[in-house]
Design a protein around this nucleic acid. Structure first.
Length: 813
RNA sequence: GCCGAGGUGGCGGAAUUGGCAGACGCUCUGGACUUAAAAUCCAGUGGGCCGAAAGCCCGUACGGGUUCGAGUCCCGUCCUCGGCACCA
């Protein structure tokens, strides 16, 4: 009996593929291209576990399927090697980050090769190599020249453990995304990227992407567009005496219709106006409150509790619509970095303002009600329904929507305000005070100011140093290296200092998918020809954890480069798929939790194909799945059955297929096609299992064509086994050079169909009838069925419903 | 609190457009092969009534509804998971 022993041939075929360059993506093949990309990994010290395999298997199956279908497939792999984790890990182990990274990469690569994926290793890239980051720096210079990179002093998120500034997106629940330490605020001069300039386009263009709705929603929420009005209030304060009217408070509100209901104003404690307009009597309390707020970490300000606190600053604002005097307060529930950092408070119709007003006994006015009759009904909570405006002079009686428009028109006429759009998205803090990243390629010259390094002088090399631990002073370790810092100005040639901050980890991954098109180009980031052919990415596969980080940043880079004329497309990833995690004991696999399953021993026991197939069969690919060590036996047994089926039939296989086997074959291929295209890979495996059982049950010799087709279809899923069988079947070249079988629709229809017979919608029996038989003919047959006769006995047949070739339902009473 | 996804046997999960619920796999039980075991193969495996079979009834989180017919559509409730969270 033929025995399936994968370890005897899997290695042989991997060597064969490598030797014959079968995975090489060819720019000049003349075929239509397909770019199938995995989110490239950060090469950690712990290596890959079976959970990491999941996405890689999906993309490899899809890539191979596309290749068999005549596409020129680009399926590359590389390393996101810069960034904090690599550096932290290296510090812990006392080695240079470059050394640790190189070691990890070697291990990752070995593991990925064992998987048998068709990666084109000639295109391997590493974001921490100078040949690569030269172009990351080049892109930064383009952004700088476009005015999209700027320097600003502001309080930014600071991780006291990683000793660096962080972007908004890197703060999760008030803590550092990497290490979990609560994030504090630190006032620093920072390099920022003006991603907010693209907010509207980043939002609108989501519509044209074939991405999971969930991810699009998350990005839309993150961008957080809201439409309303900006309104200006004049300030009246004894602190500034008769100059009062020089000061204005500008607020943003989505409810300009409630302007008549404003009863006080609130500024963020950090608001620059606070220092100017606070009166002498209030000064001490205000300063104490401001200090207390600034000392609070982001986490504390968010979670502490929602109890409202605040201080009256002694000054008043004049409501532009009715000249009412409104007391001005500061409170930490108003955030400096959203809108204008100031609000008009309408406690009658905003829950937060209601709570604040209740706490401090401030007046509450009703200006919206269910109807005009209810205009003076007292409020025991904020009334937020979009109903009818009341107590508001000329706009009373309007619905909220119309009142908003009317109020904006009025404000625009008097110059007191106008329509405005605000986003939650903030500009991107792009500098890190750490060693292991791309140096920001700028020079500070006393004479010329900030000057970008000339493009022909790139890259600015990351110097090799002895000590690369973070300083914690707010300066990067590079600042201590005088040979790095001191340079000459690219403009005037005079003495100058280099920028010493480095870029965040995301920098390299914002454009790596473009570099794969032309990874060895040392004249430009990529040639026009290569980028035109390969990009954009057709299918992008990776975890959902990057929904707002990497995926939003990459879209921003792409749009900026599009505007600069560097690339001809403005969205990088046409189709996105997020695979689910593999869990063990209900938790995400991670080395720190000690619940990882590593592929090595499984491959040793079952071979790589079995593990690949299991990864697919474990459940719907987008859903998290629990690792089940037993179930892997099932797919191993199945591959053994395939092996035996082919081995035991190939010697005496007829050259002509029976009608029965042809029907089974075409139905099978059709099913597999549909299920691969729609990413239902668990059911692809089911289709194989059913087909193989059907072939066994057919109880007749299996023809050569059937065996060939089975083998070709198997190639995307279990490439090693398919290659082995393909050669046993007498084919001299690789199965990956074969063609995906075409489906003949003629074989998909049966002459005879099963019609279900129902009484009142309940199944009683099934009958075989000729396909397309008339209702009368089927009814006649169905009425002969004993259980139907029984059910009809003594009853009246009210109605019959016939669905062609499917259902005959008798309604009886 | 807001937004989104989901709830189907002992388990993982199937089920085109409203048309045979539980495909496929795991587990378990019985059988064949074997001196024996492993491997392999065959049969059974949602619950109930029943000695068994036939047959009938119940059954897709819960309560209603629409329909000849609902896992699928509508209304309400509960639960689980994910995202956002004082964003004016």
């Amino acid at each position: 009996m033929a025995v399936y022993e994968p370890l005897k041939f899997e290695g042989k075929w991997r060597d064969y593929w490598e030797e014959h360059r079968l995975h090489k993506a060819d720019l000049e093949s003349g075929k239509p291209k397909f770019y199938c990309l995995d989110m490239f990994p950060y090469p950690s010290g712990s290596g890959l576990h079976v959970g990491h395999w999941r996405g890689y298997v999906l993309s490899d199956v899809f890539s191979r399927y596309k290749k068999l279908n005549g596409y020129e497939v680009l399926h590359p792999m590389g390393w996101d090697a810069f960034g904090l984790p690599a550096e932290n890990d290296a510090i812990k182990k006392g080695i240079h980050p470059a050394t640790g990274t190189a070691r990890n990469i070697a291990n990752f690569k070995k593991q990925l090769i064992e998987m048998g994926a068709m990666f084109d290793w000639d295109r391997e890239i590493n974001t921490s190599e100078k040949e690569y980051y030269k172009w990351t720096q080049w892109i930064f210079v383009q952004l700088y020249k476009m005015g999209l990179a700027y320097r600003k002093e502001m309080p930014i998120n600071w991780c006291p453990s990683c000793k660096t500034g962080l972007a908004n997106e890197e703060v999760v629940d008030g803590a550092c995304e990497r290490c979990g330490t609560p994030v504090t605020k630190k006032n620093m001069t920072q390099w920022m990227l003006k991603i907010t300039a693209y907010a509207e386009r980043l939002l609108n263009d989501l519509d044209k992407l074939d991405w999971p709705e969930k991810v699009k929603k998350m990005q839309a929420n993150w961008i957080g567009r809201s439409e309303g009005a900006k309104i200006r209030f004049q300030v009246e304060s004894k602190a500034v005496g008769h100059e009062s009217h020089a000061h204005e408070i500008e607020v943003f509100t989505t409810r300009p219709d409630t302007l008549y209901g404003a009863t006080y104003m609130v500024l963020a404690p950090e608001h620059p106006l606070v220092a100017h307009i606070t009166t002498a009597e209030a000064k001490a309390d205000v300063e104490a409150y401001v200090d207390k707020t600034l000392a609070k970490s982001a986490l504390a300000r968010q979670i502490d509790d929602k109890e409202k606190t605040g201080v009256f600053i002694g000054a008043y604002a004049i409501n532009p619509i009715n000249q009412e005097r409104l007391p001005i307060w500061i409170a930490d529930y108003v955030l400096m970095d959203y809108g204008t950092g100031a609000i008009m408070a309408v406690p009658g119709h905003d829950e937060r303002d209601f709570e604040f007003a209740s706490t401090f006994q401030l007046p509450i006015k009703r200006v919206v009600a269910a109807s005009l009759e209810e205009a003076n009904r007292p409020l025991d909570a904020a009334y937020t329904d979009y109903a009818v405006i009341v107590n508001s002079e000329e706009i009373s009686g309007l619905r909220v929507g119309d009142a908003k428009k009317a109020m904006i028109v009025k404000l625009e006429k008097t110059g007191k305000g106008e329509l405005a759009v605000t986003y939650k998205l903030r500009d991107w803090v792009f500098a890190r005070q750490r060693y292991w990243g791309e140096p920001i390629p700028l020079v500070h010259c006393d004479h010329c100011g900030i000057v970008p390094v000339k493009e022909e002088d790139l890259p600015v090399l990351l110097p090799d140093v002895e000590r690369y631990e973070p300083t914690g002073t707010g300066e990067s370790p590079l600042a201590a290296i005088s040979s790095f810092v001191h340079t000459t100005c690219p403009e005037c040639g005079g003495p100058a200092r280099r920028e010493t901050d480095t870029m965040p980890q995301w920098a390299g991954s914002c454009w790596y998918f473009m570099r794969f098109a032309d990874p060895h180009n040392d004249q430009e980031p990529f040639s026009k020809e290569s980028i035109n052919y390969w990009l954009p990415v057709d299918m992008y596969i990776g975890g959902v954890e990057h929904a707002v980080l990497h995926l939003l940043y990459s879209r921003f880079f792409t749009k900026a480069l599009y505007d600069r004329g560097v690339v001809p497309f403005n969205e990088p990833f046409n189709r996105l798929f997020n695979q689910g995690m593999l869990t063990l004991n209900g938790a995400k696999m991670s080395k720190s939790k000690g619940n990882v399953v590593s592929p090595e021993e499984l491959i040793e026991q079952y071979g790589a194909d079995t593990l690949r197939l299991y990864e697919l069969f474990v459940g719907p690919p987008e859903i998290d799945a629990e690792w089940n060590p037993r179930a892997i036996e099932g797919v191993y047994r199945f591959l053994g059955r395939v092996y035996r089926l082919v081995e035991e039939n190939r010697a005496n296989a007829p050259t002509v297929a029976s009608e029965k086997l042809l029907k089974l074959r075409h139905r099978f291929v059709k099913q597999v096609e549909e299920r691969i295209e729609t990413f239902r890979f668990n059911t692809v495996v089911s289709a194989f299992m059913e087909y193989v059982s059907d072939l066994q049950d057919a109880n007749e010799p299996i023809d050569k064509g059937t065996l060939d087709v089975l083998t070709v279809c198997l190639a995307p899923l279990a490439p090693h086994l398919a290659e082995e069988l393909w050669h046993h079947l007498g084919h001299p070249s690789s199965v990956m050079l074969a063609h995906w079988p075409s489906v003949d629709e003629a074989y998909l229809v049966d002459d005879e169909v099963t019609v279900v017979v129902q009484i009142n919608g309940k199944v009683r029996d099934r009958i075989q009838v000729a396909r397309g038989a008339s209702e009368t003919a089927v009814a006649e047959l169905a009425l002969q069925v004993p259980s139907v006769k029984l059910a009809l006995d003594g009853k009246t047949l009210n109605k019959q419903i016939y669905v062609q070739d499917k259902i005959m339902n008798f309604v009886v009473r």
